[in-house]
Amino acid sequence: MIKYSFINQIKYDYFSGVNSSVPVIFWVVMLLQRLLDPSHNQQVFIFLTTVLTAVCLILLLFRVNKFQSLAKRGMIKEAQLLGVSFYRGRGRVKFAFDHEGQQITAVHNIYRNSVTRSLKEATTIEVVFHPNKPKQAYLLIAIGEPIQPEVA
């Protein structure tokens, strides 16, 4: 079982981070525009920002639900990093692991930060996946941390 962390999801998972930051950027731009030029009609921009916010929040909620489900039901395995690449702030991690005698290869898009920059090819990392869908695997650090069972 995994202790789910929304902060880790936003910090490491690229899709979640974009869906949480884009609406904030649009609202800040809209508010700055309103402060700098209060006479300007912003009805269309307000409508578009509201729609964009709703869409991004819906997509983020689906992703949060998926990661929470993985935290409850997911399996943790060690995977071999096959490739790590970064372009600007976005990273792509390709890894492989064995599941039920089958070699599974998956990719997870991540944010570039101090932790993800330290990932190197040919090292091992923990990944989480649903037992029925092993090709949809994600880095454990993007979901949370494992809960250690208490020793009696």
Rank of each mutant, 00 (worst) to 15 (best):
Val24Asp: 08
Leu61Ile: 03
Ser5Thr: 04
Lys120Asn: 11
Asn132Leu: 02
Leu35Trp: 14
Ile104Asp: 02
Asn19Arg: 03
Met75Gly: 00
Pro149Tyr: 11
Lys11His: 11
Gly74Lys: 00
Arg117Ser: 14
Leu139Thr: 04
Met1Leu: 06
Phe95Lys: 00
Lys94Val: 14
Gln33Leu: 10
His99Pro: 00
Val24Phe: 11
Pro149Ser: 13
Lys11Asn: 12
Ile125Met: 03
Arg117His: 09
Val128Leu: 00
Ser21Asp: 03
Asn41Glu: 10
Ser20Tyr: 02
Tyr87Arg: 07
Ala137Arg: 02
Gly101Trp: 08
Lys11Met: 08
Ala142Ile: 05
Arg63Tyr: 04
Ile10Val: 14
Ile141Trp: 02
Arg117Glu: 15
Pro146Cys: 05
Val107Ile: 14
Arg112Leu: 11
Glu78Met: 03
Val93Trp: 01
Asp37Met: 12
Met75Gln: 10
Gln43Ala: 13
Asn132Ile: 00
Leu140Tyr: 05
Asn19Pro: 04
Asn8Ser: 15
Leu52Lys: 05
Val44Cys: 03
Asn109Ala: 01
Leu70Trp: 04
Met75Lys: 11
Pro38Lys: 05
Ile104His: 06
Val44His: 06
Arg34Asn: 14
Val128Trp: 00
Ile104Val: 15
Pro149Met: 07
Leu139Asp: 01
Glu100Gly: 01
Glu100His: 12
Ile25Asn: 06
Glu126Val: 00
Ile110Ala: 04
Lys77Asn: 10
Gly17Thr: 14
Val55Asp: 13
Phe45Trp: 08
Met30Val: 06
Tyr12Asn: 12
Lys133Val: 01
Ser85Arg: 12
Thr53Gln: 09
Cys56Gly: 06
Gln102Pro: 00
Ala79Ser: 09
Glu150Arg: 09
Val18Asn: 02
Lys3His: 12
Tyr138Gln: 07
Glu145Asn: 06
Pro146Thr: 09
Pro146Ser: 10
Ile25Phe: 15
Gly91Cys: 09
Pro23Gln: 10
Ser85Pro: 01
Ser118Met: 05
Ile141Lys: 05
Leu119Glu: 06
Ser69Lys: 04
Met1His: 04
Pro149Ile: 09
Tyr12Pro: 05
Thr105Pro: 00
Tyr12Glu: 11
Val151Asn: 09
Ser16Gln: 03
Ile58Phe: 13
Gln9Gly: 15
Ala106Asp: 13
Val115Thr: 13
Arg117Met: 13
Glu100Val: 07
Thr50Val: 11
